[in-house]
């Protein structure tokens, strides 16, 4: 906010001269950056492909409908695999993430100096890599199949569950813990009576939420060979069998919506 003196009298401006110049420079830099990035990105673009994109889209839609409903018979088994990948992966992630979370939370970690940084590193590394990339690596190492998918989901979920859980642990009421400690309880008993009951609701919510996300992610893991309905998707796309692709999209969409509904219902029932 500034008042500027001019021959016609004082003029009110929201910002001082310097601040508005800085703001303008910021916006200008963003615009320039955008132009440069756009140029770099589209350098090798063949625009002819883009100009006929509407026709391509129309053509694609034309080929995609109607969906090939009879293909459904071959989708039940991959769908079951998909759900297994998500559920077993989530369970595996819970087993690994819970100790990591307790090591990462300031108030429960055995050592702030040595153990906590390791736990935080595990969480960060797990979070920065998408489940699909984990799957890519694991398929290369373990070969294609459900196992790679389950481990990929688990590896990605450790960071998610671990981060939210350790934040929940850091937010517990310390007085309840102090009261249990004052009874002469040992460390394991303090955990059992003082800490675990306080984080149970958060824990249930976080894992159900992650399960829901995992269902969504496991539907596409098959694209890199990690099992589930994505395998059929890849085969259909590669074989240009677009009516099958449409059906798979519909099945994926229905599964995602259903799992979201289930997880929301269970979470509501638990809290």
């Amino acid at each position: 906010m500034a008042i500027r003196q001019t021959p016609e009298g004082p003029i009110w401006r929201k910002r001082t001269g310097l601040a508005s110049v800085a703001l303008w420079c910021g916006w200008l830099a963003l615009v320039l950056l955008f132009v440069v990035a756009w140029e770099a990105m589209t350098r090798n673009q063949i625009w002819a492909f883009v100009w006929d994109a509407p026709e391509q889209a129309a053509d694609l839609i034309d080929r995609m409908v109607p969906p090939r409903w009879s293909y459904m018979d071959q989708l039940w088994a991959p769908l079951w695999d998909t759900i297994n990948i998500a559920t077993l992966g989530t369970l595996m992630a819970i087993l690994l993430a819970v100790p990591v979370a307790f090591m990462a939370a300031r108030n429960t970690t055995p050592s702030v100096l040595f153990v906590r940084p390791v736990a935080i590193f595990i969480i960060v590394a797990s979070r920065s890599v998408n489940a699909l990339i984990w799957a890519l690596l694991l398929v290369a190492i373990l070969g294609p199949g459900l196992l790679a998918g389950i481990i990929a989901i688990a590896l990605r979920s450790i960071g998610f569950i671990g981060k939210l859980l350790y934040e929940a642990i850091e937010e517990i009421d310390p007085r309840q813990v102090e009261a249990v400690r004052a009874t002469g309880a040992g460390p394991a008993q303090v955990l059992d009576f003082g800490i675990v009951p306080q984080i149970m609701p958060a824990f249930a919510g976080i894992t159900l939420f992650r399960w829901d996300i995992n269902i969504r992610e496991s539907t596409v893991l098959g694209l890199v060979g990690a099992g589930g309905i994505g395998l059929q998707l890849k085969a259909s796309v590669d074989g240009l069998a677009w009516p099958q692709v449409t059906l798979i999209f519909i099945v994926i969409l229905a599964t995602v919506i259903l799992s979201e509904w289930v997880s929301a219902r269970v979470r509501a029932a638990l809290t």
Binding site: I46, F49, V50, A53, Q56, A57, L60, L132, R216, E217, T219, V220, L223, L233, V237, V245, F249, I252
Partner: peptide, 14 residues
């Protein structure tokens, strides 16, 4: 999901 949208856009614009 992003990856599914990407499949469609790749089919459209290359």
């Amino acid at each position: 999901q992003e990856i599914i949208v990407a499949i469609l856009f790749v089919a459209m614009v290359g």
